[in-house]
Design a protein around this nucleic acid. Structure first.
Lengths: 218, 218
DNA sequence: TCTTATTTTTAGCCAAGCCTAAATAATAAT
DNA sequence: ATTATTATTTAGGCTTGGCTAAAAATAAGA
């Protein structure tokens, strides 16, 4: 059984590994977890002893197979709970992260099995992120950033990169949510901004916005 | 914000206070929490500083108004989650205690408000225990122990005192659950045992069993 | 009452996770 | 290649929430 702190480290390292493959640096972990590098060193050494990650002094860390599985399982729980909060309790998708951050550490296999079933075995959480299966496997998705689209292309919003409340509320004001169809009417080379159509509305979005929205094209 | 350990102390003291009114002894708390009296002294002194209980050395403790409210709120969460687990996830009533023990410490007012609504504002948990309201108030119930009934009286099972898995499974085998009507056919003065009728079945139960089943008579 | 038994508290110690400050390794710059 | 900078680790401490052993207070028994 892993402690709350251990689970959070594993989860963070898992995410960092995916974002830029190769070993994860001590500082990167510290920054993401809003803690100090020295604390990270301590914990990472402890986790290495438990064989959930491999660690060489000054060389960064990588999760072992076991570590990946544990991390994916925490993420699975997090995302399933998010689905519960949004689908069943009618929370807004920008309100659920913090609560799921707590719920992901509830220990009970059976609970998650039943929750998954109760929710209808969802494949994605309310932000469009894939939910790992029992064994920690994630279906590879072919989503891309809205900013990668060019003029006249169309896509369906399948998720967000940035999950801050401000951003999600901004999207809401624009009526952009999971499943929303987006049509790129124009794109400015100069600053990467776009004119897009959403439903009947046409409006301007910045490069920054376009770089934080995932779409599926087909 | 109170820590997990603090919440557990408050909850335990709350229960002990109800079971036998008056101050709660250090040893009683230690025994119930399966910890050592010295640890209890430490924590109780800390909680006294926070004004959630009053404590005089060697004299036991009593929760303050604030303390009672916090404790009742933890209990409220525990029981609401139990309802969720049984009603929605179809857990059996003897499987939910441990999981609810974890879920009761999730911090989010909004979550509980919505969960309560989602469950239809239940008044009792799956074991028949009343769910305190937002302000920590509990509707007084007029349940009594089955052992208090005499020959020919009838009652409806509304809860259990002992919540161990063995006992709950024993009740299950006898088809006794919340709402089950029980008719006392006979009672033995010698050992307090009873012959009761449940549905079409008649059988013998021990005094111990009768002392752990709550019934409502009317 | 006085002694014995029980309950409760104190004192000192431990592990988990965090921190700061100082030391050391790795990397970048001249 | 040598120095300066940055990244990482070590050393030593702190807090929370436990523990054991010993001391002190209370309660019970003769």
């Amino acid at each position: 059984m892993y402690s709350l702190a251990e689970e959070n480290y594993l989860k963070t390292i898992y995410h960092l590994e995916q974002e830029s493959d190769g070993g994860v640096s001590t500082n990167a972990i510290a920054e993401r977890m809003e803690t100090k590098p020295s604390s990270v060193t301590d914990m990472v050494q402890k986790l290495a002893e438990k064989n959930v990650l491999s660690y060489k002094k000054y060389k960064g860390t990588t999760l072992t197979k076991t570590g990946k599985k544990i991390a994916a399982n925490v993420i699975r729980k997090h995302r399933l709970w998010e689905v519960f909060l949004v689908d069943k309790l009618k929370f807004h998708w920008d309100e659920v992260h913090e609560i799921a951050e707590q719920l992901e550490h509830i220990h009970s296999e059976e609970l998650i099995t039943r929750l998954d079933k109760y929710l209808g075995h969802p494949d994605f959480d309310p932000h469009g992120d894939p939910i790992p299966d029992k064994n920690g496997h994630v279906k590879p998705t072919k989503k891309k950033l809205l900013s990668e689209l060019s003029k006249k292309q169309r896509g369906v919003c399948v998720g967000v990169k940035e999950t801050g409340s401000e951003f999600l509320q901004y999207l809401d004001k624009r009526n952009i949510t999971i499943g929303t169809k987006i049509h790129v009417l124009g794109k400015e080379f100069f600053d990467g901004s776009m004119i897009i159509q959403v439903g009947r509305d046409q409006f301007f979005i910045s490069k920054k916005t376009a770089e934080n929205l995932y779409v599926q094209t087909n």
